[in-house]
């Protein structure tokens, strides 16, 4: 079995299709494309497929990933084309890479994700948001409260924000945040935290969010080097 990593984008009405349904969608698309996917053994075999980081409903993306196992290798170009022929409007296969045998699975590899935040029409901030971002980021610690079913805990959000950039002319904010399975941070959570810092409350529908890419860490925990998930695969 060979491992392939597939990168795709998600835009338009299809953003309202949730993660589990997107997985089902790709299972069917792979059958339609007659990709030579590997199956598990047992009475009800399933496709060898693993998604990187679930994307929330309503979010666009330019960097979604999943890995599949295939029994035979053709070419990356061929897989990309046959899959793209089976895509619905709004989903495009961007790249297909062959992974080294020792590569970790997609989900475990995820370390961070980059997001661009736009404001929905009529939901632009009516206060000086951009002017306060510098001060927000200059805090020694950025306190945030995480509520789980069992408890609420206060933690330092700053450790999970690897980058925060903004463009006041375009009215956009970019953030690179922790997206690992243990420490995933939702971009809307950061925005709510920023609004709270400004003494404001963010509305449920204020933001249009696009995940720009999903990253793995090829450095160390202290000195992380974030590269897109498909950077560790190769063309074939």
């Amino acid at each position: 079995m060979y491992k392939l990593r597939i990168k795709f984008s998600k835009h338009g009405p299809i953003v309202f299709i949730g993660h589990l349904d997107i997985m089902r969608y790709f299972q069917k698309a792979i059958r339609r494309a007659e990709v030579d996917i590997s199956y598990s053994t047992g009475f009800s075999p399933h496709q060898i497929m693993s998604f990187a980081a679930p994307l929330g409903v309503g979010l666009c993306s330019n960097g979604e990933y999943f890995d599949i196992g295939v029994d035979a290798l053709t070419t990356a170009q061929q897989v990309k084309e046959t899959l793209n022929n089976q895509m619905v409007e709004g989903i495009e296969i961007l790249s297909v890479k062959k992974l080294p045998d020792d590569a970790g699975n997609a989900m475990a590899s995820v370390a961070a994700a980059g997001y661009t935040i736009h404001f929905r029409n009529g939901h632009e901030p009516d206060f000086d948001l951009f002017g306060q971002l510098e001060a927000y980021l200059a805090q020694d610690t950025i306190w945030a409260i995480k509520e789980t079913k069992k408890s609420t805990k206060t933690f330092d959000l700053k450790e999970s924000i690897y980058q925060l950039a903004w463009n006041e002319t375009d009215q956009t904010i970019y953030m690179l945040v922790n997206a690992s399975s243990g420490g995933n941070i939702k971009p809307s959570f950061v925005m709510e935290n920023i609004y709270a810092f400004c003494g404001q409350t963010a509305g449920e529908f204020d933001f249009l969010i696009t995940r720009e890419d999903t990253y793995t860490n090829t450095g160390t925990e202290d000195m992380p080097v974030f590269v897109p998930l498909d950077a560790i695969g190769e063309d074939y």
Binding site: P13, F16, G18, F205
Partner: peptide, 17 residues
């Protein structure tokens, strides 16, 4: 805003294969 608030928005958006 409506699609995000209702159950299973896929019931209404079309675009299926």
């Amino acid at each position: 805003e409506i699609l995000l608030k209702i159950e299973k928005p896929a019931r209404y958006i079309g675009g299926e294969v």
